[in-house]
Design a protein around this nucleic acid. Structure first.
Lengths: 205, 205
DNA sequence: GTCTATAACCGGATAGAC
DNA sequence: GTCTATCCGGTTATAGAC
């Protein structure tokens, strides 16, 4: 078993990620990040100069798993059937491992859209590919005549929304029980796949 | 034409709503709210004592249109067909008029779930009704055998998500064009209705 | 690189005149 | 009710010793 020495910089990033995700940039305190990392507050400035710069680093890091997941799926799967299935499976898995990422990204994106546009653009995910595949299958009367953009947004919405709205869903529909929420997410992969396929395929059992 | 005199209190509420929704409670500045309302900063404290109290007022006000819409739909429609249609229509209309409400609610709910649980509980929306209707229609083989909770979450997700993730959708899929986003939302009511019905009804054209 | 001490600033809240 | 002036606590950021 390899015992890795975690560098101070890594400790800071990990701690900052935790605090920023939980509190947002405005709610986060440098002191809290320092405590979480088990280091001195002024070290934060030594490594990252300012709160803003530290935040930028954490924020761009957050995109990585999302982009990775999407690209992985697009490389691996080509037809609409396995694309839907692959996308939902991998995306939900990624979200289970990073449940706070969506809210974090969405929040900071609404707060400060400009700051982030480049991040998105430079992430080089090509969503047109999937829209073309949908288009073609609509023309081939394999799929119902839905507009590809909406279908794409639907799939993402069905996956992401429960993680963004977790407190409402858990508190309001699931007896405020963490266990029930976990089960809900557990079931959900298969549910979304069935739901989407029922919706889009013209001939579906 | 009636010229209403807007009371200072109303001016404050309106300004606070705008700023809190845009910046969140932590990002908002009392000075900014005062400027927005065109009044002096200390008047905010005269009327509401503290930032927290002002926020609470704004936050509970934000629930009103949401709860109203849902209750309206549930009173008016009884069968699953018109419930889906009515819900999506009214909900999207309400969201178009209050596009920032979902993000606001979700954000503060993630940030501080405790503060708000009572608000939700006291809002007295009964979502069980719709779940029972779905259950019954599943048993009657009118609907595919989906779990009602998931179907309910799906419908809300499809309506709400575009408003929460607007910067991503607009910037990434719609050429960063406000006009295209408006059109997107325009089309979306009908799209969601068709999509959901295709998904849930066993016999669908 | 890491710490302590402190500067510099900001923002919510209050006092008090009008 | 509304304003000006001010206080005070907290937070980011820096200086400087080790």
């Amino acid at each position: 078993m390899v015992k890795k020495t975690v560098s101070t910089e890594e400790k800071i990033i990990a701690a900052a990620k935790k605090v920023f995700i939980l509190k947002g940039i405005d709610g986060a305190r440098m002191q809290e990040i320092a405590d979480e990392a088990g280091i001195n507050k002024s070290l934060l400035h030594y490594y990252f100069r300012s709160k803003d710069k530290l935040f930028d680093r954490v924020f761009s890091d957050s995109f990585i798993p999302v982009v990775k997941t999407i690209n992985l799926v697009f490389e691996k799967f080509q037809d609409i059937d396995s694309l839907v299935e692959g996308f939902v499976r991998h995306y939900i898995t990624m979200l289970r491992e990073n449940p706070y990422i969506p809210h974090f990204i969405i929040h900071e994106l609404n707060r400060n859209p400009d700051r982030i546009v480049e991040q998105i653009q430079s992430s080089s995910v090509n969503l047109n590919r999937i829209m073309e595949i949908i288009s073609k299958d609509v023309e081939g009367h394999k799929l119902r005549p839905f507009k590809p953009v909406h279908v794409l947004v639907n799939i993402v919405a069905l996956c992401v929304f429960p993680f963004v709205a977790r407190p409402i869903i858990q508190g309001f529909l699931l007896n405020d029980s963490e266990t029930e929420f976990r089960e809900f997410i557990e079931e959900r992969t298969q549910h979304i796949i069935s739901f989407v396929k029922s919706a889009i395929f013209i001939n579906h059992p």
